[in-house]
C-alpha cells in the first residue's frame, strides 16, 4: 500500500450513494403518508373518485418514466437531439399529469373535500406527490436547459434527475392503488 492511493473516491460514486440515500429518506415520508391514510380510513374509497382520470394520469406518468429513460440513454450515447426531444416529452407528460391532478382536485373538492376524513388523506397525499412531481420537473427543466451547450459534460445531473423522476413515479405506483383501488 502506498500513500498515493489517497481517499479519492470518484465524485460520481459519492453522488450516486448520496442520491440513493436521499431517495431512501424520501421513501420514509411517503410511507408515513400511506400509514396515516390506512390508520384513519382503513380501505375506504369513495364512490365519487374519478377512476377514469386516475387511470389516465397513472399511465401518463408511467409513460413519462419511459421517455425519461430514453433521455438518459440518449445522453449516455451523446445523442443530443434525441436527448432534448425525450426530455421535452417527459416534461410535457409531467405537465399533463399535473393538469390531470388538477381535474381530480376540482371534482374532489365537491365530492370529498378536505374537511372529510378521506378527503384529508386524499389531498395530502396527492398534493405531496404533485409537489414532488413539480420539483422533479424543475430538476428536469434545469438539466434540459443545461443541455443547450454540451450535453456530454452533464451526465450526472441527467442521471440524477431521471432517477429522481423514476422514484416519483414509483411512489405513485403505490399511491394510486392505495387511493383508488383497494376496497
Amino acid at each position: 500500500m502506498t500513500t498515493s492511493d489517497h481517499v479519492v473516491v470518484s465524485k460520481l460514486t459519492l453522488d450516486r450513494f448520496g442520491l440513493w440515500l436521499f431517495i431512501l429518506s424520501e421513501t420514509g415520508l411517503f410511507v408515513a403518508l400511506l400509514a396515516a391514510r390506512f390508520y384513519l380510513t382503513g380501505f375506504e374509497v369513495p364512490e365519487e373518485a374519478n377512476q377514469v382520470v386516475a387511470l389516465t394520469i397513472t399511465s401518463i406518468l408511467l409513460a413519462s418514466s419511459g421517455t425519461a429513460y430514453l433521455a438518459e440513454v440518449a445522453s449516455r450515447f451523446g445523442d443530443s437531439a434525441l436527448f432534448r426531444k425525450a426530455m421535452m416529452a417527459t416534461l410535457l407528460l409531467g405537465l399533463v399529469f399535473l393538469v390531470g391532478v388538477g381535474v381530480e382536485w376540482s371534482e374532489a373538492f365537491h365530492a370529498f373535500p378536505p374537511s372529510t376524513l378521506y378527503g384529508s388523506s386524499f389531498f395530502f397525499m396527492t398534493g405531496m406527490h404533485a409537489f414532488h412531481v413539480l420539483t422533479g420537473m424543475i430538476f428536469l427543466g434545469i438539466v434540459y436547459r443545461m443541455s443547450r451547450g454540451a450535453p456530454a459534460s452533464h451526465k450526472w445531473p441527467v442521471e440524477a434527475s431521471v432517477k429522481y423522476w423514476h422514484f416519483v413515479d414509483v411512489v405513485w405506483v403505490f399511491f394510486y392503488p392505495a387511493l383508488y383501488l383497494i376496497n
Binding site: L29, L40, S115, L117, F123, F124, M128
Partner: peptide
C-alpha cells in the same frame, strides 16, 4: 421526515381545514 409529516398535518389542519386530528370530522 416523520416529524415533518406531523407538522405539515397540523398546518393543513389550520390552513386548509383537513380533519386528521379533529374528532368532529372523524379524525383521531
Amino acid at each position: 421526515q416523520f416529524v415533518a409529516v406531523a407538522m405539515i398535518m397540523i398546518i393543513l389542519e389550520r390552513v386548509v381545514g383537513t380533519v386528521f386530528f379533529t374528532a368532529d370530522g372523524g379524525g383521531q
